[in-house]
């Protein structure tokens, strides 16, 4: 436990000295709020509500997606610097080192979501539900982000190369947020692609938030993630964590700087 505290303290010092990290993970989402929620809001219409309300849940999920790259880069840079070797040559638990990355980056993500929420409120986004529902929505988003952070840890340990990490995670950010209901309801997609997009955790998390916040949910269809987005979110994220966490621990055990 004291290991986790010491290592998380290290990460928090990083965040204090380089707060740019918060900007780097909120930049794309903020651009989306401005472009879609403000500029395009008048030409895109959704049933049962305003488009600037609809789009925000998906934008918050984008913060989580952006954290994959940020975390992976942090992990890879420790690997390159030889710090990972040092930690691995010390009598501390492997899990504590990786856990510290995810705890500290969750704080980064929460701060970035705060910034995104601020911009959202400026363009007219409002939560039309109760306080507890609002909190539940953000809790779900943080849960989603947490799973993404572990994915970032795994990618950082497995790929090591900074440029490759940048490329892959930037592509994943675009792919996973556009292949979801973040910005458009999925009605128009062909059947198989629609199934993929519906099971994308970004879709179910965003839809669950829209339901909780009264933000023009897109629900149409009979599949499980559409009818029970909160259940689908918990399910897919649980499976993701169950796969990714053991893989990350294994990658850490055999990690080499080169």
């Amino acid at each position: 436990m004291s290991e986790v505290l010491a290592l998380t303290g290290r990460q928090m010092t990083h965040l204090r000295r380089t707060p740019e990290k918060i900007i780097s993970v909120s930049l794309t989402p903020i651009a989306m709020v401005v472009i879609l929620g403000y500029l395009f809001a008048s030409v895109i219409s959704v049933k049962d509500g305003e488009y600037h309300d609809y789009v925000m849940a998906g934008v918050f999920a984008q913060v989580g997606l952006a954290c994959v790259g940020a975390t992976a880069l942090g992990v890879a840079s420790d690997l390159r610097a030889g710090l990972t070797d040092r930690f691995r040559s010390m009598p501390i638990s492997r899990a504590s080192v990786l856990f510290a990355y995810t705890v500290a980056d969750l704080v980064t993500a929460a701060a970035a979501m705060g910034a995104v929420a601020g911009i959202g409120l400026l363009v007219g986004w409002r939560i039309h539900g109760g306080f507890l529902e609002a909190v539940a929505g953000f809790a779900l988003l943080l849960g989603f982000t947490y799973a993404m952070l572990w994915l970032g840890v795994l990618i950082g340990l497995a790929m090591r190369n900074m440029e490759a990490i940048n490329g892959v995670t930037a592509l994943a950010l675009v792919l996973f947020s556009f292949l979801s209901n973040s910005f458009m309801p999925l009605r128009g997609l062909p059947g198989w692609l629609r199934a993929v997009a519906e099971w994308n955790p970004v879709s179910s998390v965003a839809e669950a938030c829209r339901v909780l916040w009264g933000n023009a949910p897109a629900s149409a269809g009979a599949s499980l993630p559409v009818r029970h987005p909160e259940l689908a979110s918990v399910l897919t994220l649980g499976v993701l964590l169950a796969v990714v966490v053991p893989l990350a621990l294994r990658a850490f055990r055999t990690a080499a700087a080169r």
Partner: peptide, 10 residues
């Protein structure tokens, strides 16, 4: 190790 394994931000 072969490179000084220090945390640059600390």
């Amino acid at each position: 190790g072969q490179y000084a394994a220090v945390d640059e931000l600390l």
